[in-house]
Design a protein around this nucleic acid. Structure first.
Lengths: 90, 90
DNA sequence: CTCTAGGGCTAGGGTTAA
DNA sequence: TTTAACCCTAGCCCTAGA
């Protein structure tokens, strides 16, 4: 099965992704994708697509920062950190 | 809050896992992990990590076999069989 | 409670379309 | 050539059942 064309990200989809990251943090792609307020903003995206898009947005920001030293526009850029659930206190 | 980083398996760790499977059989991950000759070969691995790694090694072998029909490179690949230890003759 | 089995998800390297 | 979008999959998580 071959994918014939790329599915470009819209501004609306990018906003939904950022909103999801604000709510759940990075590394919670399935949670973001299935959020009742966000899921219908995404057009044929998988959890992996969300992860890849966030990576691209970070790379873009980084190159912009290198060129212009602009401040981050993205919330909670902590992609190297994962928040682990505490074990439920039975 | 826990820092997350992939911990790639080294050749030495793989060898230790295979040696453990030879001794105890598959499905004895805690026994392998705590074996006095093996435990210090593993770098920050849990019993679940050992199980997952064996699954990956099996999958890898399977795909190689499908492509090249090569013989098994793993000792005693009898994942459905449990090998019992002989009592050590002190 | 601990441990295993197996499905699910992520992280990061690799690949491709444009 | 460059790179956003997409693929591959090892490694790690979740949890039912023993």
């Amino acid at each position: 099965m071959v994918k014939y064309r790329k599915n470009r990200w819209t501004k609306e989809e990018e906003d939904a992704l950022l909103a999801g990251i604000n709510k759940y943090g990075t590394g919670k792609w399935m949670d973001i994708l299935e959020d009742p307020l966000l899921w219908n903003q995404f057009v044929d995206r998988s959890n992996v697509d969300l992860k890849d898009k966030w990576r691209n947005m970070k790379n873009k920001e980084k190159s912009v920062t290198q060129k212009h030293n602009s401040a981050s526009i993205y919330p909670g850029n902590t992609s190297h950190v994962v928040v682990k659930n505490e074990p439920s206190p039975n």
